[in-house]
């Protein structure tokens, strides 16, 4: 399997605070790669680096051999990188369907004038987008909420809608920022099956940040443990969980 995403020696500072410290890792095509670590370890910051919300102080980011740093945030999506957010960033005053359709934005092939006139091409494109979105709705069992406004939906459903929006874009790499946080046991179980299916049926590479070690060891091939923005350990879930440095970072010194 080839390397899909490569992070090399990435460093990011906020003022004097080093958020990510000389971090290198790579994600292979078709695997599920999880980043774990205590709060403030810089997990979400890594995602924001990849989405180009933050500029690294030093280092290189490559996706499928292309330099990510040469692209703006919206151009990253064009490469086929989709993401979810830790604190759910949906379009609150739109329906579930419309939210998922925004996920299709990177496939837009029509211009403003054509859309105002709603030419046959726009209609054909719309049908294509909607076909793709309906597949996602079926996959995630979102039919009951299809035409509901986001603002009125429960937390768990929003989490799924956000996953759906990312999937609707037809990504090659899916970044999931704490997909199970705030979910019930049942919902977490669903999420686990979905992540499995996303990888196996759709062939999408998944990079995720997660606290729930049950979910992490259940779905991921490799795990990266972060502490203070630097790599602590990398390997299979079992290897990382038994790594002394990881245990120390989680439980603190003095615990035998």
């Amino acid at each position: 399997m080839s390397q899909l995403l490569e992070i090399e020696n990435a460093t990011l500072k906020f003022g004097g605070v080093v958020a990510v410290n000389d971090l290198s890792f790579s994600v292979k095509e078709g695997e599920v790669y999880a980043i774990v670590g205590p709060n403030g370890a810089g997990k979400s910051t890594v995602f924001n680096l990849i989405s180009r919300f933050y500029d690294p102080y030093a280092g290189a980011l490559r996706f499928d051999g292309q330099n990510l740093l040469a692209r703006s945030a919206d151009a990253v999506a064009d490469l086929g990188i989709a993401r979810t957010f830790q604190n759910i960033e949906l379009f609150d005053h739109a329906t579930v369907l419309q939210n998922l359709l925004v996920g299709r934005h990177r496939h837009r092939r029509t211009n403003m004038v054509q859309e105002m006139l709603f030419t046959p091409k726009v209609r054909r494109e719309e049908e294509r987008h909607r076909a793709a979105v309906e597949d996602v709705i079926d996959f995630l069992d979102l039919q009951p909420y299809r035409d509901k406004m986001i603002a009125g939906l429960p937390y768990g459903v929003r989490k799924v809608v956000e996953l759906g929006r990312a999937l609707a874009s037809g990504p090659r790499l899916l970044l999931l920022d704490e997909p199970a946080s705030g979910l019930s046991v049942e919902e977490t179980q669903d999420m686990r099956w979905w992540i499995d299916d996303i990888r196996k049926q759709m062939g999408i590479t998944v990079l995720m940040v997660e606290h729930d070690m049950g979910l992490v060891s259940g779905v991921s091939d490799r795990v990266l443990a972060l502490a203070d923005g630097a790599k602590l350990a990398e390997g299979t879930p079992a290897q990382v969980q038994s790594d002394p440095a990881v245990i120390e970072a989680y439980l603190g010194t003095g615990v035998v």
């Binding site: 703006s72 919206d74 999506a77 379009f91 739109a94 359709l101």
Partner: peptide
């Protein structure tokens, strides 16, 4: 009912996630 209109709403509701979805 077309992509640009949805992009407008996306920008209105959340600029970060709009740009993460490829909206300039």
């Amino acid at each position: 009912r077309s992509p640009l209109g949805r992009a407008f709403a996306a920008v209105r509701d959340s600029e970060v996630s709009a740009s993460a979805m490829g909206v300039h």
